[in-house]
Design a protein around this nucleic acid. Structure first.
Lengths: 195, 195
DNA sequence: GAAAAAACCGACTGAGCGCTCAGTCTAATT
DNA sequence: AATTAGACTGAGCGCTCAGTCGGTTTTTTC
């Protein structure tokens, strides 16, 4: 692994654990074995490290989500919603550090002044929502899901799932214990009752 | 207003807007007109200012929530859930600064080492959950709500509502546009269908 | 194998931070 | 009028931080 990659990896870890502002270049230097000067040789400043992580997050994750979304399935839309929730929870578990960064204040603060950051965040969240929305519209076509506004319902489902992720990351609640109830709640919320 | 109160008020504003770590004593001093020394005369350190705000938040808000919870009502439990959601959204709107502080990283970081902070946060969240839980159990008694696990469902409803608050605070989505759908979703999620 | 380019180093800088402290001011008490 | 105590002040201390710079080592190119 190149030193540049080592820096990005360590920064991802530290930013997710301690936050952007509370991670110092000295720590980053110590963790990677690179001198502070080396870090600034590869990245013009601290913010640029963060943006690079965000760029990589987008480029690494979006294709995976897109690929998942386009997989043809024999399932009903309602079952697809359930599967999408599991998929999202699985993704956030395998990339905990990256998703933890998305739950922090700094990216949204940066987005206010930096348009690239804003665009990346928007692309990421649109992609997440699309997963749920397309499952819902599929369900409305096959009759498994009732007559609900698809985008808004997708947003509500997403907000529920994202809260679970937040619970898990902050060790506030055992998400496994809540998982079944979450799925059942979403089913009751969406299912078609006029069949 | 005493200078001590002015400091607390300004700190609440600054902490909620910029976060704990990004608020400097210099700023706080400038905003209140108090010398930096004065701040440390009233509070032994920066953390103590934060804890005082949290203490006041608890003492100011919990009684109001408790009072609301104990109001006898003619409504069905399901209607009470809807009303509780509105009540929670209303409370977060009138005390936006305080609730914004609860959505930050610092209080939970502090809670890891400071037991008073931990206790306050726990008391606050238990109180929030109790509102929704007692509406749900009421609904199960009057038959308006189905056979769902009350505490877990309360947690799910709370997580939905709290996400709305987060959307509003970060200007990510127009919550008013989502409000009706949120209510309808919760109703579908909870209502008794065996009547 | 020499020259050029890229990667790397760590001591250093200046700004900003939380917090201290010696001392002033004000108003009540004796 | 003298004393006292609480409220308040702001210069300044010790420290941390992001970022710089002059120089060294490693790699690439011809």
């Amino acid at each position: 692994m190149t030193k540049k990659d080592a820096i990005l990896q360590a920064a991802t870890y530290l930013f997710s654990r301690k936050g952007f502002k509370d991670t110092s270049m000295g720590e980053l230097s110590k963790m990677t074995g690179a001198a502070e000067g080396t870090i600034f040789y590869h990245f013009k400043n601290k913010q640029e490290i963060f943006l690079t992580i965000l760029r990589n997050l987008k480029d690494g994750i979006l294709p995976e989500f897109e690929r998942y979304r386009k997989v043809e399935s024999e399932k009903t839309g309602l079952d697809m919603v359930e599967e999408s929730i599991s998929f999202y929870l699985y993704m956030t578990k395998t990339r905990e550090n990256l998703f933890s960064i998305l739950h922090q204040r700094y990216p949204y603060e940066l987005a206010e002044t930096n348009s690239e950051c804003r665009d990346i965040l928007e692309a990421i969240y649109n992609c997440f929502l699309d997963i749920f929305e397309s499952a819902i519209t599929t369900g409305q076509q096959d009759g498994s899901i009732g007559d609900v506004p698809a985008r808004k319902s997708a947003l509500i489902v997403f907000s529920m799932v994202d809260s679970m992720v937040r619970f898990r990351m902050n060790n506030l609640y055992d998400v496994d214990a809540l998982f079944n109830e979450l799925i059942e709640s979403c089913r009751r919320m969406l299912e078609n009752r006029n069949q």
